[in-house]
Every structure is written in structure tokens, then in C-alpha cells.
């Protein structure tokens, strides 16, 4: 499990989880889960296109997910955001169907693009993945304050001169970066699960945004490490565990919020009773 050829897996998975946890915090507070799902799923044919052209798969993923991000950003300026996301997704997948019909890509490879293949991280993928991860985290750090304000309330952002549509586009591009780096590891269908589950839990446990981001990254790390370890032992696909842990985190978060609010109400009532007495 910790043998030589697994070293790459552990390094890459750790980077992917941390970055997904950080970026995922904003996915959750902005309500961008659909985009976070659509970008990876729409981008996976990029890998097929890349193999058609004989270039590195990550390059194809970066291009496709960036095109998707720009498409969603542009189209949602003049229409509903969820409609724009759905349409860009199907257009990218339609292109994907075309590319796949032209390549002789065989089924297992597509399966691993969709559902992830942690055990087969090639050495030459490690560098680009870490590079993309660093860029994504730096971008979030740079955008932190305006992105935060615009996510809390687009109106309050506009008052301070922060353009809502520009912020949306920048953010979608960051999600596109995460997509491209995480897709080969956890698969097109479950990148977003890693981006929504951990932050959904983290936001319940603290009122401080920065603490929540760190916590979210930590939960994502635990999710990924546990998923890989169990997957390695059981031979079951990693995606199953990532999806399951994602849902689990969400329910832990919901449960904790419910408990703490119920407790707070009771405490308030107790104080009032004390005052009355």
C-alpha cells in the first residue's frame, strides 16, 4: 500500500484533496455545485480529444474545462444560470460523443476517466497536477476578499465595485483548473463530490470563514486518504468511497447544525427563565 509505485498516488491524491477542499468552500457558499459537476463531466472528452491529437491528456482537460467555464459564464449573463450550465454540459458531451466515435479509445480507459484511477498515476502526471493545484490555490488566495464578498451577497459586492459576472467567470476558471488536475485521479463524475461534501460539513462546525476553509481541506484529505486505503484493500473503485464519504460529511454537517441550533434555543429559553425568576 505504501510501496514505491503508490508514492505518486499518495502525493497526487493529497494535493488534489487539499485543493478541492479549499475551492469547494466557495463552491458550496456560492451554490455552484452544478457547475462543479458540469465542468469535470463536460471536460472528460477533452482527454479523448487530446489522445486524438496525440498530446498530453491534461492539456486536453485544461482546454475543455476552460472552454466550459467561459461558456457557462457568458451564457448565464443572458439567461438562467442552471440552464446555461446544463446546456454547456450537453454541448461538451455532444462534442465528446463525436470525438469518442473517432478514436479507438477502449472502454476501460473511459471508465477510469469517469470514475477515477488512483493506482495508475503516471510519473509524468505528477508535476502538472501539482503545478495546477498551486495555481488554483494562489488564485483563490488572490481573489479571496472580493470573491468572499460577492459570494455572500452579489449586491454588497457590486456596491464596492466588484463585478458579479467577472467574479463568477474567475471562479469558474478556478474550478476548471481543479477539474483538470483532479479528473485523472478521482474521475469526472466524482471530482465535484470531493468539492461539495467536505465543505458542507466544515461550514457547520465553525463561524470563521478561514477556519472553515482549512477544516474543509482537512476533511477532504481524510476522505481521500481513507477512500484510497479502503479501495486498495477491497479492490472496489475509489469513486464509490469518495461519493459515499461526501454524502456522509453532508449529513454530519446537517446533523451538527440541527443539534447546535436546538441547543442554542434551549439555552436561550433557560436564560429567559432565569431572568424571569
Amino acid at each position: 500500500m505504501f510501496s514505491g509505485f503508490m508514492a505518486n498516488t499518495w502525493i497526487v491524491a493529497t494535493v488534489v484533496a487539499a485543493v478541492a477542499g479549499v475551492v469547494g468552500f466557495f463552491v458550496v457558499i456560492r451554490g455552484s455545485s452544478f457547475a462543479a459537476h458540469a465542468l469535470p463531466l463536460g471536460a472528460f472528452p477533452g482527454a479523448a480529444a487530446a489522445s486524438l491529437l496525440g498530446v498530453n491528456a491534461i492539456f486536453g482537460l485544461v482546454v475543455f474545462s476552460a472552454v466550459g467555464a467561459i461558456g457557462i459564464g457568458q451564457l448565464s449573463k443572458r439567461g438562467k444560470r442552471d440552464v446555461a450550465t446544463a446546456l454547456i454540459l450537453v454541448v461538451l458531451l455532444g462534442l465528446g460523443a463525436l470525438f469518442l466515435s473517432m478514436t479507438s479509445e477502449y472502454a476501460p480507459e473511459i471508465y477510469s476517466l469517469l470514475f477515477g484511477e488512483v493506482l495508475g498515476i503516471a510519473k509524468d502526471e505528477v508535476g502538472p497536477i501539482i503545478g495546477l493545484g498551486v495555481v488554483a490555490v494562489l488564485a483563490i488566495g488572490l481573489l479571496y476578499r472580493p470573491l468572499m464578498l460577492s459570494s455572500i451577497s452579489p449586491e454588497l459586492g457590486e456596491v464596492q465595485g466588484i463585478s458579479t459576472s467577472k467574479m463568477e467567470l474567475c471562479f469558474l476558471l478556478v474550478v476548471a483548473l481543479v477539474t483538470a488536475m483532479a479528473l485523472p485521479v478521482v474521475g469526472a463524475l466524482l471530482v465535484f463530490s470531493l468539492m461539495v461534501g467536505p465543505p458542507a460539513a466544515a461550514r457547520a462546525f465553525t463561524n470563521r470563514p478561514q477556519v472553515a476553509i482549512v477544516l474543509s481541506a482537512a476533511v477532504a484529505l481524510v476522505t481521500v486518504w481513507a477512500s484510497i486505503a479502503i479501495s486498495y484493500e477491497s479492490n472496489w473503485p475509489v469513486g464509490f468511497f469518495v461519493g459515499g464519504f461526501g454524502a456522509g460529511s453532508y449529513f454530519i454537517g446537517r446533523g451538527w447544525t440541527w443539534l447546535s441550533r436546538a441547543y442554542a434555543t434551549r439555552a436561550d429559553t433557560a436564560v429567559e427563565l432565569e431572568h424571569a425568576a
Binding site: G31, S33, G239
Partner: peptide
């Protein structure tokens, strides 16, 4: 709503993988 949908989808896709 967006998050709730995503969670159900994530769990469903995880199951699909299996």
C-alpha cells in the same frame, strides 16, 4: 437546493461506480 441535489448525485454516482 443546489447542494442537496449535488449530494444525492454524488452518492448515486458513487454507487454507479461500484
Amino acid at each position: 437546493r443546489d447542494l442537496a441535489t449535488g449530494i444525492v448525485l454524488g452518492a448515486g454516482l458513487g454507487l454507479a461506480a461500484l
